[in-house]
Amino acid sequence: MAQVTFNIWRGEGNNGSFKEYTTEVSEGMVVLDAVHEIQIEQAPDLGVRWNCKAGKCGSCSAEINGMPKLMCMTRLSSLDLEKPVTVEPMKAFPLVKDLVTDVSWNYEAKMAIKPFKPRKPDAPDGTWRMAQEDVERAQEFRKCIECFLCQDVCHVLRDHHEHDKYIGPAMLVKAAAFEMHPLDVENRIPDLKNEHGIGFCNITKCCTKVCPEHITITDNAIIPLKESVVDEFYDPLTKLFRIFKSKK
């Protein structure tokens, strides 16, 4: 057992400051455990979102010592406990209270992406056949737990506040999940260019670094989508070629 100090952001809307709490920690604890301990013993009204406590639901996103992370998957043993541990809310979204932010914009951004549209069934009984290799490509993006840490770290949203023009890496992952779905026949490429602002991404790969699901966001999702945009809008040869080889 050891005493560890935490500096936790407290406040609502635009008003707030760090407040210092000291609590007992034990082996194997994660940051969320310490926050709960503080909540029970010292600050019952400390606002914090969480659900599964196992890195599967993506609710407890926060910035720990300045790094966007899931509180439930950050073990205290991975941090320097000699210094106070800072825990603060995500910066790319408006603050509700304490560690809770208003992430509703993400749900609106997702609504704007055209939904999944399957090809006609392959078998007379209305089912489809797909190869495991083809399924795996899209499955990577379907691991997304919607924690929005990639949105939080993206400078287009975090620093430049282009929420009206750019849907952000998490939603590009969503678009990629649909676009690379073996059964999908919808075309989202014009929307990605014209409505969703894919051009804003300048491939700094910060999103990939913070993804707790280890999705290769930039290389596997965003870059192929960008290439599709180039193919569709800027490459006359491909355009001509596509006339003869329409998407099935």
Binding site: P118, M130, V135, Q139
Partner: peptide, 20 residues
């Protein structure tokens, strides 16, 4: 399960390409 697949769920597959 088949209905869920028609809405986009991507299950692991058998060698014949059916739901594993």
């Amino acid at each position: 399960v088949h209905e869920l697949e028609s809405w986009g769920a991507l299950f692991d597959r058998t060698k014949e390409g059916k739901i594993l």
